[in-house]
Amino acid sequence: MNGTFDPPATGKRVIPGTYVFDGDAARRGFAINEMCFSFNEDANRRAFAEDEEAYMERFHLSEEHKKAIRERDVIGMLNAGGNIYYLAKLAGILKLGVQDIGALQTGTTVDEFKAALLAHGAKLKELQTQGETA
């Protein structure tokens, strides 16, 4: 995990550990999101994989965007306005699943991240046994 949570502006509702993709974020992140949107096409994914720097340049990524991508720093990408729906396409190229991404962001190992999810499942089972939920 690189970077820390950096809420974009004052006076806004802050949800800890959560990046609300509002207009401010969308403005900061337009270039990186546009690049990620281009990854819907396989030829573009291959072009990125072949020469990341040239591809980022083509989409006018900011130095902040580039640095976060070079370092595979997901939190850095979010702080730079990346939106997870588009970043997920980049994650695919980098062969990162949602649980790899989850581990990267929460500073845990992938096994720990998966275990935490399974713990929610266990808790649900317990509640269901107690009849508190259907």
């Binding site: 995990m1 949570f5 949800i15 800890p16 550990g17 959560t18 990046y19 997901v74 939190i75 979010l78 997870i84 970043l87 997920a88 949602v98 991404i101 989850g102 962001q105 929460t106 500073g107 991240f113 935490a116 999810l117 929610h120 808790k123 649900l124 509640l127 939920t133 259907a134």
Partner: peptide, 21 residues
């Protein structure tokens, strides 16, 4: 569910149950 941020992996059984109920 939540994919991004330090809160990635967030799940809320209570709220989900409220919605389903």
């Amino acid at each position: 569910h939540q994919l991004e941020g330090e809160r990635a992996g967030h799940i809320n059984i209570e709220y989900d149950t409220f919605c389903m109920d």
